[in-house]
Amino acid sequence: MMRNIIEIENVTKHYGAFAALSDIDLTIGEGEVVCVIGPSGSGKSTLIRCINLLETYCDQGSIRVDGIPVQPGPTLGQVRAEVGMVFQSFNLFPHMSVLKNVMLAPMRVRKTPAAEAAAKARELLGRVGIAEQADKYPGHLSGGQQQRVAIARALAMEPRVLLFDEPTSALDPEMVGEVLDVMRQLAGTGVTMVVVTHEMGFARQVADRVIFMDGGRIVETGTPAQIFDTPKEERTRNFLSAVLNH
């Protein structure tokens, strides 16, 4: 039996009268790879941003990561150290070299000595295939390379959970593959991954479980085969036929 690492109970979030999330219940097991799909504005990004409290969900409900409640206060740092995040727009630190980008959080948060952090950073940059770019600045890298640095930066904290918020949506088409390849390698290393994505091929191939969201609700959840081949809900079918047959 898989241990639960993320437990989301009855989470609801409103922006004024608009319900961004309604009654979300979701548990994710350790090492599981979950892809969240759905139309724009369906609450996918909001949901994963609640997991490390980049969005507050104070309206209602509770989220726990590895048993620790995700809420403002002294335990939040612990949660964020365990939960890495990769953003759509990379959000690398432009005034630091690639190596420093990857070294910063371990040095500041985990108090890792600089030499050790640098060695670890070089190893991670090697793992995502850009060891030779370590001393360049983010602005001199392609989008695909920048996103791979962002993945290495998140991995440097040795997180138990990695959140991906549409990691390939801002990339030129020819660079999508290199980022997905890195993510494919990560799946199966034991790290729990929650991936908001429009890459249906990736979701089908890599996910243990696919979640379809619409209108701030989880409409349907199942294995990739269940969701993509035999979706039960009409909304899921409509969405999939719109994105797959274009």
Partner: peptide
Amino acid sequence: IPSGQFEASRALGLSYKDMMIDVVLPQAIK
């Protein structure tokens, strides 16, 4: 400074002080 810089810092678990000193102020100074 783009909000993504603050979000990335927070997501990495940096404290407010570290975020300001290492990420935000060096960019703002320029």
